[in-house]
């Protein structure tokens, strides 16, 4: 396994302590797609949180843009062993979106345009840990990178940061999403190397 040596930075022999175990630094941003890239016009875009009562909290693009927007600089870690440090995003915190949401459920299923799903515990979305991101590196998010908007949950492996996100459905129990049904870990903490079952 060559990633052990590639994990060292060029400057010295110290491994960067921002790099979780088994990860390698990359400069670019590999694109991983499990289907055709959905073409979503922001005029048609909508994000919805659905709770156990059946209540639906929805935002269209203009309503999202009217919410407090945050600049986020964060490291991202892909389960396929690459990490990128200090990436710059803009988005709306999930804390903001959940302000008026009444739920007793502790888990969510993120749904995307195109049909992809991924499960994320609610605790991992709140307290400044997750955003609906629509800019990367100062530019509108490319469709290839999940635009117009993707979930950004950078403290978990990047497959949890669902591209083309269109909503969250509250769940009583933690149920596996698309990749989680096919070998990937239910939670995906890179510092614990929670890659697979």
């Amino acid at each position: 396994m060559s990633f052990i040596t590639r994990g060292f930075t060029g400057r010295g022999r110290e491994r960067d302590d921002r790099l979780p175990p088994g990860q390698t630094l990359v400069g670019d941003f590999p694109v991983l797609s499990a289907g055709p890239t959905p073409d979503i016009d922001t005029a048609d875009w909508e994000f919805t949180i659905r709770t156990e009562s059946g209540a639906q909290h929805s935002w269209n693009w203009d309503q999202l843009m009217a919410l407090p927007i945050e600049d986020v600089t964060t490291d991202i870690h892909c389960v396929t062993h690459w990490s990128k440090l200090g990436t710059g995003w803009r988005g709306v915190a999930l804390d903001t979106l959940f302000e008026g949401v009444d739920t007793d459920y502790a888990y969510t299923m993120a749904h995307s345009y195109g049909g992809y799903t991924t499960n994320v515990p609610l605790d991992d979305l709140l307290d400044g840990k997750a955003w609906i991101a629509f800019e990367f590196d100062g530019e509108p998010l490319d469709p290839e990178h999940g635009g117009p908007a993707r979930l950004l949950v950078p403290h978990l492996y990047f497959w949890k940061s669902a591209k083309w996100v269109r909503g969250l459905v509250m769940m009583e129990d933690d149920e596996p999403g698309f990749w989680e049904q096919n070998g990937y870990h239910l939670r995906g903490d890179p510092w614990k190397e929670e890659r697979y079952w």
């Binding site: 499990a34 055709p36 389960v79 096919n182 070998g183």
Partner: peptide, 11 residues
């Protein structure tokens, strides 16, 4: 067939 880093999806 869509080949991504996470896996291969057949549609």
């Amino acid at each position: 067939v869509y080949i991504s880093g996470a896996g291969t999806v057949v549609r």
